[in-house]
Computed example of a mutant assay.
Amino acid sequence: MSDPSNIIKQIIGKTLKAIRLKQGLSQEDLAHECDVDRSYISMIEVGRNEPSVTKIFELCKGLKIKPSDFFKLVEGEYEKARKNG
């Protein structure tokens, strides 16, 4: 497996985007809910920026999901990536 921290960044971004799209929110909508710039959301979603735990909690609040649920999704995707090598 390549660099685990890079893989986790990618998974966080993909998970955030999937939840956002499922809820019918634009990047702009989520950015407004979390009081951040839209470009920050974009950078997370493409895996170029890794949000802090505090910011993940804020993003989850904006998405109206529990951080524990978000981390479970990320963990599940990480385990899949590890198995697929």
Rank of each mutant, 00 (worst) to 15 (best):
I7F: 12
S5M: 14
S2V: 15
N84G: 11
E77F: 08
R20C: 05
K9L: 07
P67L: 11
S42G: 03
G76E: 14
M1S: 15
V36G: 05
I19C: 13
K61R: 15
K83D: 07
E33L: 02
D69M: 12
V46S: 04
G62Y: 01
I44M: 02
I7A: 15
R82V: 10
Q23T: 04
N84P: 02
Q27A: 07
D37H: 01
G13F: 00
E33D: 10
G47V: 01
I11R: 14
R38G: 00
V36D: 09
E79C: 05
S39K: 01
T54L: 06
L25D: 09
Y78R: 12
K55G: 05
I11E: 04
D35H: 07
C60W: 01
L16C: 10
L30C: 06
V46K: 01
V74L: 08
Q27N: 08
E77M: 13
D29I: 02
S26N: 05
R38L: 02
D29R: 05
L63V: 11
G47A: 03
S2D: 15
M1T: 13
A31F: 00
K55V: 06
E58F: 04
E75V: 06
R20F: 05
H32K: 09
K17F: 07
T15R: 13
S42E: 05
K17L: 12
L73C: 11
I44R: 01
E58Y: 03
K80C: 11
N49C: 06
N49I: 00
R38H: 00
I44E: 00
D29V: 01
G85A: 09
C34T: 06
R20E: 04
D3A: 09
L59R: 03
A81P: 04
V53S: 07
F57I: 08
S68K: 13
M43L: 03
K64F: 03
K66S: 14
I65D: 06
D29P: 06
N6D: 10
K83T: 11
I11D: 02
E45G: 00
K83W: 09
S5T: 15
S26D: 05
P4H: 15
Q10G: 06
I65N: 09
K22Y: 06
H32Y: 07
I41A: 02
Y40E: 00
D3T: 11
G13L: 01
K17E: 14
S68N: 12
C60V: 09
R20N: 08
S2C: 12
K17A: 14
N6M: 13
S39I: 01
E45F: 08
E28A: 02
K14Y: 06
L30Q: 08
D37C: 03
E77L: 13
I65G: 04
H32R: 07
D37M: 02
F57S: 08
G47K: 02
D29H: 10
G24N: 14
R48V: 04
G24D: 11
E79Y: 10
K61Q: 15
C60Q: 09
D3H: 11
Q27L: 00
E45T: 04
E45S: 03
A31P: 10
